[in-house]
Structures are given as C-alpha cells and as structure tokens.
C-alpha cells in the first residue's frame, strides 16, 4: 500500500504509466462517446411529453454528474496535498480544475438550450441552476488562484483551501431540487428505489455517464502530464525525453 503511495509520488513513473493508460483508454473513450451520442440521438425513443428535445439529456446529465464527482477528486487531492505535501496530489488538483470548469460549462449551456423548448426560458435563477453556476466559478477560481501565485507551494495551499471550502456546494447542488421549490425537476436516476426513466432511455444514459467518467480520467492524465513535465524540467529524465522527442 505504502509502496504504491510512494510510487504515485514519483513523477517519471506516473508519466510513463499515464502514457501507457492513455494509449488504449483515449481511443476507447472517444469511441464510446461517439457510440453513446449516436445511441441517444438516433436509437432511443422520443419522450412522451418532450418529444426529441429530451435527447439533450445524454450529454447534459453525464456532464453534470462528472462535474460534481470531479470536484470531490479535486478537493481530496487538495486535502492530500495539504496534509502530506505530496507534489503529485497538488498536480492532480491543478489538473482537475480546467476539466471541471469545461464540464460544468457543458452542463450549463446544454441545460440552457434544453430549457428553451421545454420550460420556455433559457435561464432562471432557481436553486439548482444558480448553485451549478457557483460550481463553475469555484473551478475557475482554482485555476485563477493557481496562476496568481509565483510560488507553486503557496498556490497549492491556497487552491486546496478554496476547493475544500467549496465542497459544501456539492450536496447543495445535489439536493437543491428537493430542498427548495425550483423549476428544475428532481433526479430521474435514483440509487435507492426505481428510476423514473424508462429502461430504453436509462441504459444509453448510464453508458454515456461511464463514457464521460472515462473522458474525465483521460483529460486528467493529459493535464497532469503537462504539469509534471513543466515542474520537472530541470531533471535528467525530462531533459532526456526532450532531446529525444522534441529535438527534431
């Protein structure tokens, strides 16, 4: 267990491992995203009330789900970086922020586009949508805060604190539709009890959620690789890699 923990702290090991993982995970992820989109767009029945506009669910819900889960990854990485001063945790936290921001942006934009034909409005300041907007700003805040510091150790500390404080927003987003009167409907997929979405629509949705999780892992590794190289640029292994690959 501890040897694995220490291995994760080793930049060249993680760089090589991530390269090996990405070589097969990235093509699979892209294929799954395309397959899921085709399934959702063409091979699922329309909804009895919303017709075809509901097909936006196959990107809106996965993006939102992974944006929320990604925040926990960022906050946990932040906590590890605060407690153990582990460089890789700091790098993982930094790598999560732009991905989370991108996914939250997708959830907000697709939700807005979906709202127009169904609710009759692009935007409404209800609890779910507003708390999701706050999540977007939290992610952007971590990105900006990190850039604001010259000293990377200080930046990591400040970002870790911000992301830990922001975790309170995640259960609020999740429960907002139950706690307050909102325009947004409650969740259709439930951990306990039956889901209120027909199986013919549930399976492509679950498929798409898994594909978005894979996308998150891919993007996280890709971002971490850049960050690792930039921080380790004085070490022998990065310089060897640069002369070998970037020399031409």
């Amino acid at each position: 267990m501890w040897t694995l923990f220490h291995k994760f702290g080793s930049p060249p090991w993680l760089y090589r491992l991530s390269g090996a993982i990405l070589r097969w995970l990235l093509p699979i992820t892209l294929l799954a995203l395309v397959a899921g989109a085709v399934w959702g767009l063409l091979f699922t029945p329309p909804d009895f009330r919303q017709g075809n506009s509901y097909r936006i669910i196959y990107i809106h819900v996965p993006a939102a789900v992974v944006a929320l889960a990604g925040y926990y990854v960022m906050a946990i990485a932040g906590a590890v970086s605060l407690i153990w001063r582990m460089k890789m945790a700091d790098i993982a936290m930094r790598a999560c922020a732009p991905i989370g921001a991108a996914l939250t942006f997708v959830a907000l934009v697709t939700g807005s586009i979906w709202g127009k034909p169904t609710w009759g409005t692009w935007w409404v300041w209800d609890a779910r949508i507003t708390s999701m907007l706050i999540l977007f700003f939290l992610y952007l805040g971590v990105v900006a805060l990190y850039e604001a510091y010259e000293n990377k150790a200080l930046a990591a500390k400040a970002c870790a604190v911000l992301s830990l404080v922001g975790t309170v927003n995640i259960p609020i987003i999740y429960k907002s539709v139950d706690w307050w009167y909102s325009l947004h409907q409650p969740a259709s997929i439930k951990f306990t009890g039956g889901s209120t979405i027909d199986p013919s629509m549930l399976y492509p949705l679950l498929f798409m959620i898994s594909a978005f999780y894979c996308l998150f892992v891919c993007a996280l590794l890709l971002n971490m690789r850049v960050e690792i190289l930039e921080r380790e640029q004085r070490t022998a292994w990065v310089r060897a890699l640069a002369t070998e690959r970037g020399g031409s």
Partner: peptide, 18 residues
C-alpha cells in the same frame, strides 16, 4: 407576465405512456 412549463422527472417512450 411570463408562464413557464415545469416538467417532472419521468421519461418514457410514447407507447409506454399510452
């Protein structure tokens, strides 16, 4: 001055609804 529709969390094909 404005009326919005609120839909619920049920999704199903038209045949199932029928």
């Amino acid at each position: 001055s404005e009326v919005l529709a609120k839909h619920d969390e049920n999704y199903m094909p038209p045949e199932v609804a029928e």
